[in-house]
Nucleic acid binder design. Structure first.
Length: 559
DNA sequence: GGCAATCCTG
DNA sequence: CAGGATTGCC
């Protein structure tokens, strides 16, 4: 493959969000502005640095809630900078913008469907006129207008006959709606549709202040006078809602929805986790789109090595002034959908917590115990829809065409959401590899944060640490290999050793950590690789490799 | 001795 | 990638 081809262009359509930096955390923790500018290299040892990062991390909760307060956004109107809209302080806050900005195409479709049901055949009352009807003339007159309008233009004769036929017509139309939606959903990727459905349905009830909803509200008001149609509409909405819920829950059970979405090659959304180098001091990007701030813990996770002073030829750990920014790519067509997916996840997680508090920990322990513990890497996330405590058809969670979801299933939904993976999956491995681009030595705290869907145990922690140990091993082996190769080839100046995206070394690394090649490897990683390569080169050229522990100095430096 | 990381091997 | 051995630090 031509490196120049894949280096940039390929990333524009599908990149990765490390789901470990899930909205739940992203919204909950913010970089402490005071601590953010501290140069960790000034601290005497790594423990201080770690404590600093962690204290910043813990302290950042308050800062986060204030920073992420949507009321601030509302004061600025439609700011070009869209932050992740979930305030840490409002456990059940559902940002109108986030939910409202779901798939507009589908929304428009639903709007058209609703409009079509009310305006055709022969209905001319637009949203505006309907609102005016409600405002000025009251419900009864509005109904009269609609009925007269409808009957008058449909030519069905008497009003009674017209109603019967209208009901028939509506039924047929609703059937068609189902068909259209089903067909559409089948065409859509399985990752995108659940959010849409959920978002559409959910936002129907949440976005009371939106203009669209006002229009629909008036439509619903119109229906309220007609029990038959109410029933039909209720069925449609219930169907949509149940399907959306089941799908969104299903997506929750996927250990890394966004990772999977992108790695599996189904998503068009480009979510990039990038370093914040070059961003402004506030940690905000000016990309003009929504962005999510990564908790300060990331600064620890991204304890990348930078060259503080090339003149001194001394490499030190340098605390990054800002956390990396998770932002939405400008070119993404599916941004709202992804954001809403985050919203769904966020909401679902809150629901799970809510369910936990209501059902009690004992029951959840039972649920968890019902899951088989897997010590090895599993190909799929642990999912156990059937439990001792709640007996519901397991296919419930899979079937997109359920006519309805009952109360028990709702309970199940919330119950299952609480369950965590008790084993690491292949997707966790993929995720860990991608994390390696940012951190070579993740602390257990970082691991817990990034693998928040995993129930941590000593075994899990050890396994993750072992993974990173293996990653490092491979990394250093490559470094040594290419350093020696450079010496053999007669490279005399260390400055001639560079790691570019086109270089063979990078391709080897990329092949190992990012085999699918759908992740934009951060430039910082290339810098680290280059620094390490040069260190190996220098050590070997100076004959330090005669010392059995010659690598340790490099390891220590890179730590 | 405990722990963490690397080294070695399969 | 995982398991066990080894090393080094506290």
């Amino acid at each position: 493959m031509n490196p120049s081809v894949w280096s940039e262009g390929m990333y524009s359509s599908s990149s990765i969000c490390l789901d470990g930096f899930h909205a739940e955390h992203l919204s909950s923790f913010q970089l402490d502005p005071v601590l953010s500018n501290v140069d960790v290299s000034a601290h005497k040892n790594s423990e201080d640095r770690k404590m600093l990062s962690e204290s910043a991390y813990y302290r950042s909760g308050d800062a986060g809630s204030s920073l992420m307060n949507p009321s601030k956004d509302s004061t600025t109107g439609h700011s070009p900078i869209r932050r992740h809209p979930f305030p840490a302080s409002s456990s059940c806050g559902h940002d109108e913008w986030n939910l409202n900005s779901g798939h507009q195409a589908k929304r428009a479709r639903v709007e058209n469907i609703i409009k079509g049901m009310t305006s055709s055949p022969g209905m001319h009352c637009t949203n505006v006129t309907r609102n005016q009807c409600v405002k000025t003339d009251g419900m009864q007159e509005k109904e009269t207008i609609h009925e007269q309008d409808y009957v008058g233009t449909s030519g069905f004769g008497s009003q009674r006959t017209g109603k019967q036929l209208e009901n028939q017509h509506l039924r047929a139309r609703l059937d068609h709606v189902d068909e259209v939606i089903d067909t559409k959903d089948e065409d859509e990727s399985p990752e995108t549709s659940p959010r849409d459905a959920f978002t559409d349905s959910y936002s129907e009830f949440q976005t009371s202040s939106s203009r669209e909803y006002q229009g629909r509200k008036s439509v619903m008001s119109y229906f309220q006078s007609q029990p038959e149609r109410i029933k039909l509409m209720a069925e449609v909405l219930k169907y949509e809602l149940s399907r959306a819920v089941s799908r969104s829950v299903d997506s929750i059970f996927k250990s890394m929805p966004l990772i999977q979405t992108n790695i599996e090659g189904n998503a068009e959304t480009d979510i990039r986790l990038q370093s914040s180098v070059g961003e402004d001091e506030s940690g905000l990007t000016c990309c003009g789109n929504a962005e999510v701030q990564v908790p300060d813990v990331q600064t620890e996770a991204l304890s990348l090595v930078v060259q503080k002073s090339r003149l001194e030829n001394k490499f030190v750990l340098h605390h990054r002034p800002q956390p990396p920014i998770l932002f939405w790519n400008h070119d993404s067509k599916d941004q709202p959908s992804e954001r809403n997916h985050e919203a769904v996840c966020q909401h679902a997680l809150r629901c799970s917590q809510d369910a936990c508090s209501r059902v009690g920990p004992a029951k959840f322990d039972t649920l968890r115990n019902s899951i088989k513990v897997r010590s090895k890497v599993n190909s799929r996330s642990v999912r156990s829809p059937q439990t001792h405590t709640v007996s519901v058809d397991p296919t419930l969670m899979e079937s997109p065409g359920l006519p309805h979801v009952n109360i028990e299933s709702d309970c199940l939904v919330k119950t299952n959401l609480y369950m965590l993976n008790e084993g690491l999956t292949t997707n966790h491995l993929k995720k860990a590899k991608l994390m390696f681009f940012y951190t070579r030595y993740p602390s257990s705290l970082v691991l817990k944060m990034c693998f928040h869907d995993v129930q941590f145990s000593r075994c899990i922690t050890s396994q993750l640490i072992k993974w990173f140990s293996n990653f490092r091993e491979f990394f250093y082996i490559q470094m040594e290999k290419f350093a020696r190769h450079a010496l053999i080839e007669g490279v005399s100046d260390v400055r001639g050793l560079t790691v570019e995206r086109q270089s063979e070394l990078f391709r080897a690394l990329n092949m190992h950590y990012n085999k699918a090649n759908d992740f934009q490897v951060p430039d910082r990683f290339l810098e680290v690789a280059e620094i390490t390569l040069r260190e190996f080169y220098i050590s070997i050229s100076m004959g330090k490799d005669r010392d059995p522990s010659w690598k340790k100095a490099i390891y220590k430096m890179m730590h």
